[in-house]
Amino acid sequence: MSRHQPHGSPCLTRRCFVQAAGSGFLLAVAGVTTGCGDQEQWGVILSDPRLCGACSRCAITCAALNADGPGVAQALVGPEQHYQERQFDNANWYAATCRMCPVIVEDEQQVSPACVAACPVGAAQIAPEGHPIFGDERVRFIDQDRCIGCGNCVTACPVSHPLLDDGVARKCELCIGRWGAPPCVEACPSRALLYFPVWRGDIPAVFPCQLEALQAGLV
C-alpha cells in the first residue's frame, strides 16, 4: 500500500482519520484535530453529539432553504441522518453532517472521498481552490448536470449522506454559494454544529465544546 498527496489536496493518513473518528467527538472531517501538522485544511461543519438535542432545527432550516420546504427527509444535515446508528434514546442522537472526507489514495487509486471515488461520471467532485461558487473551501460537491442518479455515492458514503432527489443526488455543499454561510449552523440553539471555514496553519480557537477542544489539544 502506498499513500501520497495528490497535487493540491490536503495530506491525510488513515491513522489520522481513525484517531479523529474515535475521539468521541464525531468530527465531520478527519485530520482536523491532530497529528497532521499545519498543512492546508478545508471547510467543514463539525457536529458534537454531546450537545445535540435532536431538535432538528438544522434539518428544518436546511430543507426549507435548499429543498423548498421544511421536512427533514429532504435535509442534508440533522438527527434523521443518524438513525441507523441510533440506540433507542436521545442521548446518542446528533446532527450528522457530510464529513467532507479527506483525499486518500491507495495503490494509486483514490478511495476517499468515497463519493468522488464511486461516481462513474465524475459528477462528485472536489472543488478546486478559487472555485467561483465555493471559493477556497474545497467543497465536495455533486455537479447536478452530470449526475445520472445511479446512487453509487449514497452507497459508498460512510454515513450514507447524499440524498437521491428527483433522479439526481444532492449533498451538503456548506451553502457557501447560496447563503454565504451554513444556515444550519446558525439555526442550532445548542452550538452542536460549528462551521470551520477553510484555514491554513493555525487551528481555530473556538470550538463548539471547549472541553472537547481542550482534550484534543486544540486550544
Binding site: R50, L51, G53, A54, C55, S56, R57, N90, A91, P189
Partner: peptide
C-alpha cells in the same frame, strides 16, 4: 447528560 427538545424547538427543555 444533555438537553433535548421537540422538533423545531429553539430552547430544549428536556433533560436527557
Amino acid at each position: 447528560v444533555k438537553n433535548s427538545g421537540c422538533v423545531g424547538c429553539v430552547m430544549n427543555c428536556f433533560s436527557t
